[in-house]
Every structure is written in structure tokens, then in C-alpha cells.
Amino acid sequence: MRNDIIISGVGGQGIVSISAIIGFAALDAGLFLKQSEVHGMSQRGGDVQSHLRISDKEIYSDLIPKGKADMIISVEPMESLRYLPWLSAEGWLVTNTNPFINIPDYPHIDKIMAEIKSVKNNIAIDADTIAKEIGSVKAANVVILGAASPFLNLPYEKFQGAIKFIFGKKGDAVVNLNLAALEAGRKFSEKNK
């Protein structure tokens, strides 16, 4: 078993929370894990990505080879496309549809969506709206993770467990919000895959 995942977004969007949840879930399932993340300069509103690898065998490289990723999870639509060279032919692209515009030449969203739709296996989800409906736009990243969860080789309970652990300190309300976000994302994918 092996899942190689690229997680992408813009510096400040908090992609770490997604890798932290998957990471915890993987470790809890007794798997090996390597997760390489970006710190420093590009966190100031630049493009950021994280390589997350989980496997039942020892993992060597911290970086995923190009063409080998099983999935791209992106919290921003244009950023999801930046890492296509890493995605394998059968890999899934799971992305938020809400653009984060901090540059003057941000392309028209229709053009971006057309490229996303041209990827064989794709899930484009309006995670912000779904998260707002549940209670807080802050849970958007967990909605996206929920949307990615059916395509990862980890039992659903492991994700739930990770959320309970990671958000536990912040109280039941936050835990329940994020569990609902996970569920909503997952339902969306099951309907739209």
C-alpha cells in the first residue's frame, strides 16, 4: 500500500492542517510516513506545496518523483494545476474552486476550471460555501480533505480519530464542526466522482 500526495495552496492558507490530519491518521494506522513542507520565503503569499507519502514499507525519498503522485489536494484552483507534472495518469486531482487572488494577472477562473475538468480523475468542490453552511469557512480545508478521503487507502475512522485528536484541545464544538466538514466533503465526492 502506498499513497503519494501533493498538497498545494498559497502561503498562509494553512495547508499544514491537511497534512497534519492525514499524517496522524496514517501513523495511527501503523504506516510509514514522510512529509516534506515549505517554510520560509514563499510563505509570504507565494505558492506552497507539501509532499506527503504514506506506505506500509519504508519510504526513502522525501520528495515524490514526477509522474508518480496518486493525488493532488489543493486548497486553491490555480495552484492545483501547478503540480500536474507530479500527478500520475490515473491520479486524482481534488481541489477547492475558490480562487485566492493576490496577483494582478490572475487568469480567468473559467480557463482554470476548464483545465481542471480536463484531468481524467478530478473533484472540484466549492469548499468555502459548504464550510460556511456547516458553520465556519475555517473548516474549508477539512471539507477538501473529506472530498479526498474516498481515494486514499486509509479507513474513514482514522480521519475522524485524527480530527478528534488534533482539534481536541479547542473543544467539542470545533471537533464537531470539523467532523461535519469531513463528512460533507466525503459525501460530495461520493456523489460526484
Binding site: Q43, G46, P65, G67, M78, L81, L84, N102, K111, E115
Partner: peptide
């Protein structure tokens, strides 16, 4: 050498900037 699809043309650079 393995590689997926090329980065589509619509993708533009996103350099770091002031908050």
C-alpha cells in the same frame, strides 16, 4: 524519467509579496 502532464499555460507565477 517520469512525468505527468505539463503545467497548463493558464498557470502564472505567484511570487511572495507583502501581506
Amino acid at each position: 524519467d517520469t512525468k505527468g502532464k505539463d503545467v497548463p499555460q493558464v498557470v502564472v507565477p505567484r511570487p511572495p509579496s507583502f501581506c
